[in-house]
Design a protein around this nucleic acid. Structure first.
Lengths: 271, 271
DNA sequence: CCTGCCCATTAACTTAAGTTAATGAAATGC
DNA sequence: GCATTTCATTAACTTAAGTTAATGGGCAGG
């Protein structure tokens, strides 16, 4: 996790935190930008498993970059049921809107032991002013979140349990793979079935039934902490999975070149 | 947030487009900022009802500010079913991520005749550079969208049809009211029941049954193009409606002031 | 080693919501 | 004026998913 900006080193990729890996999937970063992003990683912190990180109704204070482990955002209803809104995997930002939103309408809990880097959302402002490309990249991260939530809405609204479960597994696999946390057709899945149930709005029993069906159909294999996707192409076909919302971005340089009216402000500020 | 005399004058309200009204609900704008926002409204355009505005898979080119009418974003599945992701009402921005996202994974169609103001997403960059407060306000608009989508996920995942329908009606009423398009307990609803059905992931028949139940319980009244909320407090209680995600923001001025101070201390403040 | 807890599985039964279809009520068109 | 279409309603029936509950496998802790 120590900064290492030797871009030519063969270990280059291995040394970067997952957020930077994720960004490098879609756009090149220069040394300045990497340094700036590394600075956001200056305050590592660790949460135990099953710990509340952000509480419903609290004032937004910090943002967190996940570097290791799983967490999730959820909302509890009065009847005791819980709806998971999204999962946070390595490379994701918890509370990306902390800069402007006052109160968090939702809770965030860790699932596994969670390693994060805490940053003050106000840091984003100076980051954006000095590095306009990073401003756009941050916007891309937000747009990507928007697409993932839209997918979650489609899953919950109009897909059968069978397709829903398969679709979510495909997405998690895809997201983990982008940050080098999954093999070609398997990934570590440290979450119990009740998380799937609360994410997909289904009962625990029905999740169990549905996973069995997927196992019987030789589409997945599950061991206590791993999921294997045995036939990714068939899974994608069945679920109509289209993952392109996860790894596409516009050509950032041409956007900036075409619009920069006043480049003179853009002096490098690195110390 | 503070009422000021100018803001309460009827003339004041009539003259601004709904996006500005929405922003003025949570933060004061100076003349410069209002002028900048007005410039974004320089290219009015009109779409007929039931027209596709953005097509699945197309390259993002334009963004649109809705000034009048309703539209919605959706995704169609192979079996012919459609899931509505969100509605666009006056004051909303269609394609707010067009600046960075390449292809739209979803479609947007008008419901009624739709008046919009088209703007090039690249315009946002110079706007942000010259008006940092507007940069934050744009971020707030995105964070608000995020909250609304989270609510949509909770509705579809863990609420009964009865609560789901009531909750959506409350939210639409709240949103319309913010931009002066709704009375205290009634609003024009130009959308047929199949939109509700596709938004909530329920069948058309079940929407009809559910609306009847709400009518019988004297909670709503419906005429062809209007919905009346007969007992808002009871509706809020039943559905656990908490609308604060729609109209809260941090104190933008203090964010900016604090960051300028941080800037000057930046070299000493980290190691 | 047992004890207890968590989690997954399976079966039996229930229910909320889906489906199909018939009817009516408006709105639209000729 | 009537014909056509669209939309809402209601009833009868079906089904996917929920509920309850019993069973068993791991595994942590004494």
């Amino acid at each position: 996790m120590e900064p290492n900006t030797q871009k030519d080193s063969p270990l280059f990729h291995q040394n970067f935190p997952p957020l930077i890996l994720k960004i490098l999937q879609v756009v090149d970063l220069n040394v300045d930008e990497i340094n700036t992003l590394m600075k956001l990683h200056n305050h590592p912190h660790s949460f135990d498993e099953l710990t509340t990180i952000i509480n419903h109704g609290a004032i937004h204070k910090k943002s967190y970059i996940v570097t290791e482990g799983w967490a999730y955002r959820y909302y509890d209803l009065n009847d005791g049921s819980r709806q998971i809104i999204n999962f946070y995997l390595p490379g994701d930002i918890i509370s990306p809107y902390a800069l402007v939103m006052r109160k968090t309408p939702y809770c965030v809990d860790s699932i596994t032991c969670l390693k994060v880097c805490e940053f003050e959302p106000e840091k984003l402002i100076e980051l954006f002013v000095t590095q306009p490309r990073l401003n756009l990249i941050y916007g891309w991260l937000l747009g990507r979140e928007d697409s993932m939530m839209a997918e979650q809405i489609v899953r919950n609204g109009r897909r059968s349990a069978y397709k829903s479960v398969a679709h979510l597994l495909l997405e998690i696999h895809h997201r983990l793979r982008i940050v080098d946390h999954a093999a070609e057709e398997a990934f570590p899945m440290p979450i119990a079935q009740h998380y799937l149930s609360n994410a997909l709005g289904l009962s625990l029993v029905h999740i169990s039934r549905t996973l069995r069906k997927l196992r019987v159909n030789k589409l997945i294999a599950v061991t206590p902490k791993t999921v294997s996707l045995l036939d990714i192409n068939k899974l994608k076909e069945i679920t109509e999975y289209k993952g392109y919302y996860l790894d596409q971005i516009k050509d950032i340089n041409s956007i900036i070149e075409n619009t920069m009216i006043d480049n003179s402000l853009q002096t490098t500020n690195m110390a």
